[in-house]
Every structure is written in C-alpha cells, then in structure tokens.
Design a protein around this nucleic acid. Structure first.
Lengths: 228, 228
DNA sequence: CGGACCGTTGACTCTTGTCAAAGCCAGTGG
DNA sequence: CCACTGGCTTTGACAAGAGTCAACGGTCCG
C-alpha cells in the first residue's frame, strides 16, 4: 500500500530545545522514534491522547475535517515542534505527515504526572501552548481578512522566517507539502494557490524550482504583499 | 452626548490596578474592579502586559488590526473568561468592550511569580490557554472553510451553547455586540451578516427582536446549517 | 510505454464584497 | 410634543475575487 520512498538522510542537527527538563526527565527524552510515511496519519481526531510527539524530521500537518470532506490545516509542525499538547482526553485534530517524517513518542500520562508536581515543567507547557495560540491567531487573521495574494505571501514570509535551511541558502524556502495542503491551510483552492504563485513569479518576487523550492528574490516586496 | 464614544485607544487613561500581595493571591482571586464603557479599549496591541483581566460583566472583543484598518476579532471574552494570558512582555492584540463591561485587574508579575512555584496554578494557566487554543482553532475552521450561512449559524450555535441567560429563556441568545463585530469575527462584511440573519429569519429558524435578541426556533436545523 | 498523481492554465460561475440609499431607534433640543 | 440628528441595520443593484469545471503537461515509477 505505502511504497517505500527513499529516506532523507541529510537531516542536520535537530533543535535541542525541549520542554522536558533534561536533569529530571524520567525517560521523556528517550521516547521511541517512529517513522511516518508521506500522507500517513500520526493520529486522528477522537483518538485517545496517549502520547505527545516531537517532530524530529519532516513536516506534520495538523488539521480538522468537516463531515463533507472540507479540511482546514491549523498548523504545520516542523522539527522541534511538539504536537498533541492539551488538556482533553482525546485528540481534537488529525495529524498527518506531508512528507516522510520522523517523530518521537512521549507518554502523556508520565508528562502530566510530572507536571502536576513540577511548576517549571507546567510553565513550559504553558509557554508552548501560548506559542501555538499566537500562531493560530496569526493564521486566523490571514484567513479572515487577507486576499489570496496576501495569504500566500504571508505564508511564504512565515516559512522564510523559519529559515529551515540554516545559514546556507537563506533565501530558499522549501515547500515540503502539496498545493492542496497550502490551500487547506489558507482557505484557498489549489488553483488559486497555483495562480497566485505564478503571479508572484511573473512579478519577479520569487522564483520556483520544480514547484517545491521557492527562491525569494525580493524579500521586502514579498513582505509588503503579505499585508502587514 | 456623553455617549460611549469616549474611546479610540485611550489606553493612556488606563487605571493602575492595585497589586495584592502575592502571598494572598491564589492566582485569580483578587484585583481591583474596573468599569469599561462600550467601545473603550482595555488595552491595545503593543501595550506592556502588566495585568491579566477577568471579565466580570459584559463582553470584551479581542482583535488584531491590519495597517489599513481591517480587523479580525479573535475571540469574545464573556464573564468568567480571562484575557491577556500569555508569555510575551507585550499584549499581542487589542481588547475592547463591545458594550458596557466590568473587569477585574490582576497583576501579571504577581501571577507569574506565584505560578513559578505553584504547579497547580501553572497547570491552570496551561489549561486556560489550551481552551483558548481550541476556541481559536474552531473559529479558524469556520473562517477558512465555511460559507457565510454556516459561519453565522455556527456563531449562533456557539453563543446558544454558552447559555448566558441561565436556565430561563434557554433559547434566547443576546447579541451584545454590533454587526460589525460579528462580521469582523467571521471574516464577513456587515451586509453579509445582516443578509444571512435575515435569511435565517425567513427560514423560520430564528426570530430576532430589536436586532439584538435572537430566539432560536429550530435548534437542530440551526446546528445542521452550522455545517458540522 | 503507460498510468497515477500533481500542478498549471483557461473559461466560466457564483458567492460575497462594494457602493448607495433608506429605515429604525434613541437621544436631544426647539 | 415632535422634528432633527447620529449611529447602526437592512435592503438593493452591481462588481469582483475566488471557486468550479475541464483540459493539458510534467514527473515519477512500475
């Protein structure tokens, strides 16, 4: 069913920043590593929330589905990000790899048990979720108020700011997801996403290689187009 | 003429809340009460985050502005809700009363100092922010994927579920905000909001008294229209 | 080579936005 | 008491941005 695609072997150093205190971790750092193929689900909405995951490699799309199949991607989780935090017993969204990925699995019960007596850990959870909240609201502003051009530009600026490539190729933004993923995140169709990217190309603001690698030619112009 | 047009961003007049000793502060219990007139700002984006507030009465709209004036309301805070939680030193959105309101002011520094050594308080913060995150993502799904009718219906269902009126008048939903506030939350214009509400009336799903009091006539139908 | 999948492009449709005018209600002042 | 004013909502006519449907093209892989 899932064909074996060739693994990325080139993943560089992983972000060390962890919400789990190294000094007193009860094995949190060593949760089992799991490989997830492109399009494979890590978990679905409604699944019991037995684990929290840290993305080690690849990208995980977090999404919610309507009954008729419409999908809203609420976040992309990149290496170093945690997914599945929260206080509810079940997951409230789907998590699905957009490309081949690796994730570390961490026990929810152990985490919560630890947090109940460790204020600094609880505060780290607080901060992690607060950061997610800021991101969600930022996306909400895009989707609620911006034009297609502004949304796509803001999306690219956002990816650009993450600087996933490290210092080399500062102005190259990889798009490790399909047009449909971008569209489902921005509340646009794949056709509109495609047309908008084409327009950015004709405006010489970006260049696109193989449809997946965006070269930002005019950063400031792109930021202007992102609409504040 | 002393009507409520006090306040375009008059946060310079923000009264300083009294700071209760941290030792007595079980996090959320104390703080001075402040009255906020309709349209008055509690704080603005960029203001130093010196206080967290609990809504005691009325409704506070939390919003973000684009440079050209477009506004996205990211949440309505009702009595019992907290506003201004987070980890950043400054506020990242505006908070503005949609109608006359009362709020309790709580010192940020006292709260954070307390939370640093009290895991249960820190966990409460974690849970409060997690709940905000769930709400923000739910709104994101509406704005990103739903039609105008579905958004308005979902908005009404959401208010209906809060059951602000207590047990009496279970199917009456007060709208203590303007059409422009609803529109800015749902990513619609006031005209579209108005037309959609009119359509719901002609469908006999709701009835509207004085434009501000919605009687839900067919709850199930309204939920269907909300699109899952 | 052929098929599956994805992205691009074009023609056309339609929901929602824009602009404009009228209605409604509350508060005010003659 | 009633006309006037201002803020907000409703309604209508029209425009436009994004969606829909369809065809084509490129790439990967068996």
């Amino acid at each position: 069913m899932f064909s074996e695609t060739v693994a990325h072997r080139d993943h560089g150093k992983l972000p060390v920043a962890s919400i789990f205190p190294a000094s007193q971790n009860k094995g949190f750092e060593r949760g089992s590593l799991r490989r997830v193929e492109a399009r494979e689900h890590v978990f679905c909405e409604g699944d019991p929330r037995t684990h929290v995951f840290r993305v080690e490699d690849g990208v995980i799309a977090l999404s919610k589905l309507l009954s008729d199949g419409r999908r809203q991607i609420i976040d992309f989780a990149y290496p170093g990000d945690y997914i599945g935090l929260g206080v509810l017993p079940d997951h409230v969204f789907d998590a699905q790899a957009t490309c081949s990925a690796k994730i570390r699995c961490l026990s929810t019960t152990a985490l919560e048990h630890e947090a109940a007596s460790d204020a600094s850990l609880a505060l780290k959870l607080y901060k992690a979720v607060s950061a997610e909240l800021v991101a969600a609201r930022s996306l909400l502003v895009s989707v609620g108020q911006k034009t297609a051009m502004e949304r796509v530009a803001a999306f690219l600026v956002n990816l650009h700011a993450r600087n996933v490539n490290g210092d080399t190729e500062r102005d190259v933004v990889k798009l490790p997801m399909r047009r449909s993923d971008i569209g489902d995140m921005l509340g646009l169709t794949i056709e509109t996403v495609s047309r908008t990217i084409t327009k950015l190309r004709t405006m010489h603001v970006i260049d696109v290689i193989n449809g997946t690698e965006v070269h930002v030619l005019r950063t400031e112009r792109l930021k202007e187009l992102a609409g504040e």
